[in-house]
């Protein structure tokens, strides 16, 4: 299941991650593990020093990417959480048919339309999102979302706080 403690320093960062990135945990999943991913991701992010509001965003993003794999990406996936320089990188891979061209979460879906809603939300809540084709053969996909310890971009004024 999860990576042994101590082995984290031995693994070189995956492609596209900062060279000093450290692997926090590796979590294989199917539909049965979706719910337990949430507290697991929250616990590792909290232990890495991530503020609570950013942990909430990371849990949402991680769960959404894993759900995509279960529903559209062949049902079996792997999640890695990496950390470097006040950010956590959530990398979710699968061996499914791949994410169709044109679906990248860049366009806001019409209210009420379910199409590409998930990736749009991941892109909106994360500080960065990158989609790669799976390694090896042409099948599968790898999505990496970055959540900073501090929220980037425009300051949000919440009503009634």
């Amino acid at each position: 299941m999860a990576t042994e403690p101590g082995s984290q320093f031995q693994q070189a960062p995956a492609q596209g991650l900062p060279p000093d990135a450290v692997l926090l945990v590796e979590l294989p999943f199917t539909e049965a593990e979706l719910v337990s991913l949430r507290p697991a991701v929250a616990a590792h992010a909290d232990a890495a020093g991530m503020p609570a509001d950013r942990v909430d965003a990371l849990v949402f993003v991680a769960y959404e990417l894993a759900t995509n794999v279960v529903r559209h990406g062949g049902g079996v996936g792997g999640m890695q959480l990496w950390t470097a320089a006040d950010a956590i990188y959530c990398r979710v891979s699968d061996q499914g048919p791949g994410i169709p061209a044109g679906i990248d979460g860049r366009a806001q879906p019409e209210p009420g339309s379910p199409a590409s809603r998930g990736l749009w939300l991941v892109r909106t809540l994360a500080d960065g999102m990158h989609i790669d084709a799976g390694a090896g053969d042409s099948r599968g996909s790898i999505v990496t979302a970055t959540i900073g310890f501090r929220r980037e971009g425009t300051f949000v004024q919440y009503p009634d706080d």
Binding site: F60, E110, P111, R117, W120, V156, Y158, P159
Partner: peptide
């Protein structure tokens, strides 16, 4: 009425722009 993360999710789906809806955080 919701937490900040739910606010962010619903706002990203255009909830705030709907005329008959008030979205607030607690």
């Amino acid at each position: 009425r919701c937490t900040r993360i739910s606010f962010d999710v619903l706002a990203a789906l255009g909830m705030q722009e709907q005329a008959r809806v008030t979205l607030t955080t607690a």
